[in-house]
C-alpha cells in the first residue's frame, strides 16, 4: 500500500458517500445516470467474486464489501425508493454497447482463461467506460449540479491516483498489470474534459454548464 493507492481508494469511497448523501438528503436522484450505476454494480459484482476464494487483507475485504453493497444501495435508491425523481428521459445511453464489447475483449485479452480471471478482466474493461452514460446525461441536459460535479471529480480522481500508484509500484516493486494500466488510462482520459470544466468553473463557484 502506498500513498497514491490509499488516496485513490479514499477518493473512490468519498465519491460513493457524496452520491448516496446527495440522493438521501435531497430525496432525489435527478441528474444521476442510473445506467452508469447499474454498470458499476455489475463491475464490482464481477470483480469481487474473489472474496470467496482469495484473502488479501482485512482492508481489502472490507473495501470490497463496501463497494459492492453501496453500488446495490445506489441502484435500489434510484430504481425503487426515489424512482419518481429519476431522469429517465435523458438517461438514454445504450449500455449493451459497452457491456458486449467488454465481454468480447475480456474473452480475447486476458491473463488466464478461467472464469474468475475473465470476469475480473471484464470488470476492468467495463469500469473504464462505465461513466459514459453519466457524461452523456450531463451533455444532454447541458449542466450538472455542483454536488454531482464533486461526485464526478472524486470518482475520476480515483483512477488517476491509481495511475500514479502503478508508476510507483513499477519502480518500487517491479509490479505491473498491463490490463489494469491500459484500462485505467482510458478511464482517466474520459474524465479529462470534465476535469477541465470542474477546475475552470465549479471550483470558481460557478455551475457546471456546457456551452450551448
Amino acid at each position: 500500500m502506498n500513498i497514491f493507492r490509499l488516496f485513490g481508494d479514499l477518493s473512490h469511497l468519498l465519491a460513493i458517500i457524496i452520491l448516496l448523501l446527495k440522493i438521501w438528503k435531497t430525496r432525489s436522484c435527478a441528474g444521476i445516470s442510473g445506467k452508469s450505476q447499474i454498470l458499476f454494480a455489475i463491475v464490482y459484482t464481477s470483480r469481487y467474486l474473489d472474496l470467496m476464494t482469495t484473502y488479501i487483507s482485512a482492508y481489502n475485504t472490507f473495501m470490497k464489501i463496501v463497494f459492492v453493497a453501496t453500488s446495490y444501495a445506489t441502484v435500489f435508491l434510484m430504481y425503487m425508493k426515489f424512482k419518481a425523481t429519476y431522469d429517465r428521459n435523458h438517461d438514454t445511453f445504450r449500455i449493451e454497447f459497452l457491456i458486449v464489447p467488454a465481454v468480447i475483449l475480456a474473452l480475447v485479452i486476458n491473463q488466464e482463461f478461467t472464469v474468475l480471471e475473465v470476469l475480473w478482466t471484464f470488470s476492468i474493461y467495463l469500469e473504464s467506460v462505465a461513466i459514459l452514460p453519466q457524461l452523456f446525461l450531463v451533455s444532454k441536459t447541458g449542466e450538472a449540479e455542483s454536488i454531482t460535479s464533486h461526485y464526478l471529480f472524486a470518482l475520476g480522481s480515483y483512477r488517476a491516483l491509481y495511475l500514479l500508484n502503478w508508476v510507483y509500484r513499477y519502480y518500487a516493486e517491479d509490479h505491473y498489470d498491463l490490463i489494469a494500466i491500459v484500462a485505467g488510462l482510458v478511464q482517466t482520459v474520459l474524465y479529462c474534459d470534465f476535469f477541465y470544466l470542474y477546475i475552470t468553473k465549479v471550483l470558481k463557484g460557478k455551475k457546471l454548464q456546457l456551452p450551448a
Partner: peptide, 10 residues
Amino acid sequence: VPEVEEHDEL
C-alpha cells in the same frame, strides 16, 4: 505463460 498474480488492488 506468465503466472497470474493475485489481484491485490481494488
